[in-house]
Every structure is written in C-alpha cells, then in structure tokens.
Design a protein around this nucleic acid. Structure first.
Lengths: 177, 177
DNA sequence: TATTGTTATACTCTATAACTATA
DNA sequence: TATAGTTATAGAGTATAACAATA
C-alpha cells in the first residue's frame, strides 16, 4: 500500500514528465507531480491560511496587529502565566534563540512583561500586561472569525479528522531516522 | 454548526484562560487555545514536514541538494518545458519577483536554463539542463521516500481525504472578503 | 558542568515598489 | 500603455554557534 502510493508519484512524473494537455494546448500551468504530494499541498494550504490570518487579524487590531506567531506566544503565556522563555520555546517547538526577538517585540509594545523568577536569576517569568490581555481577547475574536472562514466549510467531523490527520503526519515527520 | 465551532474556541480560552492542570501541577507546556485551531496545527505540521524534507532530500544530493521550493520549480519546469518565469510564478502562486532569485540559484548550479523566447525578447523560456533532469530524477526518488515517511501511516483513503480537506481549506482561505 | 538568556549570523520563504527593456 | 524581468528592500519564519551570568 505504502509502496504503491509512492510508486504512483514517481511513475507519473518519470514516465510522463510533460503531460499531454498543458504544453500542447498552450497552457503552461501544469503542476507536474506536485498536486499528488502531501508536502506540497500542506505548504500551499499553510501559505493561504497564513495570508488569510494576516488580512483578518494582523492590521485589524488598533495598534499594529498580531502576526500568527505573536498570537501563538500570547496564547501560551495566557495559558501558562509566569513560564520561562525556554519553556515557551519548548511549547511552541522552536529554539530558545528564536524566542528572544519574539518576546522583545511584544515587550516593546507593552503586551508582555519579563519578571524575575524567585530562585533563579538567570530566567525570566513571562506574563501578559493588562494591555496584553485586552489585545489577546480582541485578537481571539478575530482568530475565531478567521477559523470560521478557513474551516467553516467543513463539518465538525471533517474538521476533527483534519486535525487528526495533521497530527499523525506531524508525528511521522518528526520521527528521527 | 459553524458558530458552535468558533464559539468553543473563544469560550474555552476566555472563560478558562489558564486551565487547571498546567500551572497547578508545575507543567508549563499548555498550549491554550492553539491545539483547537486548524491554522495552528497546519503551521506546526508544515514546519515538521519541511524539516523532514530538508533532512531527507536537501543535503542528500551530491552537489548541495534541493530545498522544497527548488524541487517545486524543477517539477513545474519538467512538466512545462519552455514556460516563462511569470508563468512559473503563477503556477506556484508566488510573485514574479520571488521567482528571479529562485531561478538564479538553479541556473548558477547548472540545473536550469534561461532561453530566448522566439517572438518576445522580454521573456525567458525556462528549461532543465541534462544535469537538471538527472538531479530532478534523483530528487524524485528521495521525495517519494519523504512522502512515504510523512504519509505512509495513512491509508490511501485517508491520504485522499487529507488532500481533499487541505484543498477545501486552501480555497476557503483564498476567498477574497 | 549544565542551563538561561542573549547576540551574531545565516538560511528559507514571502511581498511591494520602482526600474529597464520590450510589446 | 501594458507586460516580463530585475533589483532593492522589507519582513514573516527558522536555525546554529559562541558568549555571559547563574545554577
């Protein structure tokens, strides 16, 4: 089963690298093997969803709006007030060096605070300011609208299955060897 | 139905911004609303798949390997030999300015050629060199392996449905208003 | 020694605006 | 005028390596 799927992809392109319709008819928009690849569809969909988020959520907030990544930071700090930067990085699955600039921006905008951690002077405890909580709440309603736009056409069952399938693909991709 | 889905997300976080378990138990890895969002799961999955591609395909090819984006360019040029850069951009859904650097790199590596277009001296006809075709074919077998890794755990039916759901989400996200 | 945060650097991907040459 | 390609610039995301301060 597994072999057949992979084989289809290879055969389709190796045997017929320049499919009938496109060139002969003057069209030049044939995507070759790409439409059959999970990775490619994932990338295109993610790109479209990212763009929709930028339109719906970024720029629609009074000050400057939140990027998808910034919203993610606020969501995790809200759920885990006082967490350390390295814990934030672990939660988001990114390196601690990546967190620094992200927190810097939110701190400069007065949405997030770095506080001392009682018994560890190396670390910073992250919390939302009052303003940060207000911005997060307003962003959340926009994010809900955004989610309704991109996934509102799916039934609840389809939406669940999409999340399930994405989770399985993600875990498979993270498998080491 | 649509409202209920969006409502769940908002309610879950607004009412219970700092869920029971995480903070009380000392854990600091609660993701808050994020795990319920299609957009967030899409982003994490895409990131994981991108990383797996880099390990499996990039760097495993003699010279320097192909990034996901570079493989996409080769795949489209293979399927539409002689197409113009702007057509390549349209096919990939990116701006023509983005294509320039992508083609530059592949041309510098001797994988792609810019040829004159008969009756339009503004345009360039893109084709793969013999070396480009060899690299593409070898990359394709690695991409098949990559796809088997990330989607091999899905049944053919599940794989089809994932592609269908991604396509529907992508189209919904691209809807203008 | 190991961990937290930081900085410097580098890479992928994307776009807009302004320019040249050509249609 | 409009289109194809280019350049400059910007900004989203990501990482590694080396360092200081602290545990």
């Amino acid at each position: 089963m597994r072999n057949r799927v992979a084989g289809e992809v290879a055969d389709a392109s190796l045997v017929d690298a320049s499919p009938a319709g496109a060139v002969a008819s003057g069209r030049r928009d044939d995507l070759g093997v790409l439409p059959g690849l999970v990775g490619y569809n994932l990338r295109r969909t993610q790109e479209a969803v990212f763009g929709a988020f930028m339109e719906m959520v970024t720029g629609k907030l009074d000050s400057a709006g939140l990027t998808p990544g910034q919203f993610g930071v606020l969501a995790i700090v809200v759920a885990n007030p006082g967490l350390k930067q390295i814990e934030l990085g672990t939660a988001l699955g990114v390196d601690r060096s990546t967190i620094v600039a992200a927190v810097d921006k939110l701190e400069n905008r007065g949405l997030v605070e770095r506080r001392p951690v009682p018994h560890d002077r190396r670390a910073h405890a992250l919390t939302l300011t009052a303003e940060g909580q207000r911005v997060y709440r307003r962003a959340l309603t926009l994010v809900d609208r955004h989610e309704a736009k991109i996934a509102g056409g799916l039934t609840p069952a389809e939406r669940s299955q999409l999340l399930d399938l994405l989770g399985r693909v993600q875990r498979a991709a993270q498998q080491r060897p």
